[in-house]
Design a protein around this nucleic acid. Structure first.
Length: 313
RNA sequence: CGCGGGGUGGAGCAGCCUGGUAGCUCGCAAGGCUCAUAACCUUGAGGUCAUGCGUUCAAAUCGCAUCCCCGCAA
């Protein structure tokens, strides 16, 4: 089959590689235009673009995928199948009508749960024990098309959004190969999603990373794991931003009545902060302008004492 | 030229504003105490204060330039 691949994020890389190694032809890779990124706002391509460049594939980076020019370009390729993975733009019905067989999408959740741009992050933030990969027939309404294939992936307590993305990315590439076989043989069924079970997973925003110390230790722990690699969980310490990368839950800690956010311990044994319910032992953190480091190292060089309150400006 | 913070013995930091013997916590080495310890005491090794140029009698400290790192913003 002749395939056009749509994708922009790191998540799509393994699937593209799987396609490149398959018997099918990748006629073109469509990805987001280069954007100014980083400290000095240099123009950088997407992770996926690098992979496509290495494989010497044709690359298309339209500002607007639904424009007349884009439409014309895509039609001329006469593709059989569109494979869309974390592309970043919503395709119009006109675009979706182009492939001879169908457009498919690989989504990193068990649809209809977690429709939207950040399914991996939200699954962890909400404390889910499992997530998965769903391959759907694409319709214009975001992540709403009928399901072709689905596979569950367990979420371990130690998983973060980063590690889960790795797992799901591998799973997605594997499932894509299966889906291609089924589609090639016309051996598949389309199963409609149950609209009653829909949950949305909107794009990550900066605010999602702000820690509310009134929440329970379990919730904050999920948040810390879920908002990586961006925006990262953060709080305040004497006017500076303090990022927390890794922590663990302590249900009990001997103390008077701490206020949420209060540091109840800060010594070689670790840093422990009080939450609305339970306590959080902070293991890896980073102060603004500083390096990311272990709690032990942080304690050695920074002034942090029991009684300090996190989150106050 | 988007905004801001930082680079000081092996680790993490203070000192810089208000130039004048390089300091703290930890680690490391040796010794001591202890049934014992992430315990405690003693002693010790280890630093071109990122790099270059400049100002000065004198620069970690003031000025200019370069390199590297980080936070914000996207």
């Amino acid at each position: 089959m002749k395939i056009i691949f749509f994708g922009s994020s790191h998540f799509a890389v393994l699937s593209l590689q799987a396609l490149i190694e398959s018997k099918h032809e990748v006629a073109c890779v469509v990805t987001q235009p280069d954007k100014q990124k980083g400290r000095h706002l240099h123009f950088t391509g997407t992770d996926l673009k690098d992979t496509a460049l290495q494989a010497k594939l044709k690359i298309f980076q339209p500002e607007d995928i639904n424009s007349k020019e884009s439409l014309k370009f895509l039609k001329n390729l006469e593709a059989d199948l569109f494979v869309i993975i974390a592309y970043g733009q919503i395709l119009s019905q006109e675009v979706l009508d182009i492939p001879k067989i169908m457009p498919i999408n690989i989504h990193a959740s068990l649809l209809p749960r977690y429709r939207g741009a950040a399914p991996i992050n939200w699954a962890i933030i909400n404390g889910e024990k499992k997530s998965g990969i769903t391959i759907i027939y694409v319709t214009p309404k975001l992540d709403s098309g009928p399901v072709i294939l689905q596979e569950e992936v367990k979420i371990e307590d130690k998983d973060t959004a980063v590690s889960l993305e790795e797992k799901l990315s591998r799973s997605g590439a594997r499932l894509l190969e299966q889906a291609l076989v089924k589609i090639d043989n016309r051996d598949y069924r389309l199963i409609d999603q149950d609209e009653a079970k829909v949950i949305f997973a909107p794009k990550m925003k900066k605010e999602v990373g702000l820690i509310d110390w009134n929440a329970s230790a379990a919730d904050i722990h999920n948040q810390i794991r879920g908002v990586l690699p961006w925006p990262g969980a953060f709080t305040g310490l004497r006017g500076k931003i303090l990022k927390i990368f890794q922590a663990e839950i302590l249900s009990i800690f001997p103390n008077h009545r701490p206020v949420p956010g209060e540091v109840v311990r800060a010594d070689k044994a670790g840093i422990v902060a009080a939450c609305g319910r339970g306590f959080l032992k902070i293991n890896e953190l980073q102060l603004e302008a500083g390096k990311r480091m272990s709690a032990q190292n942080f304690i050695i060089g920074h002034k942090l004492f029991p009684g300090d309150i996190l989150g106050k400006k």
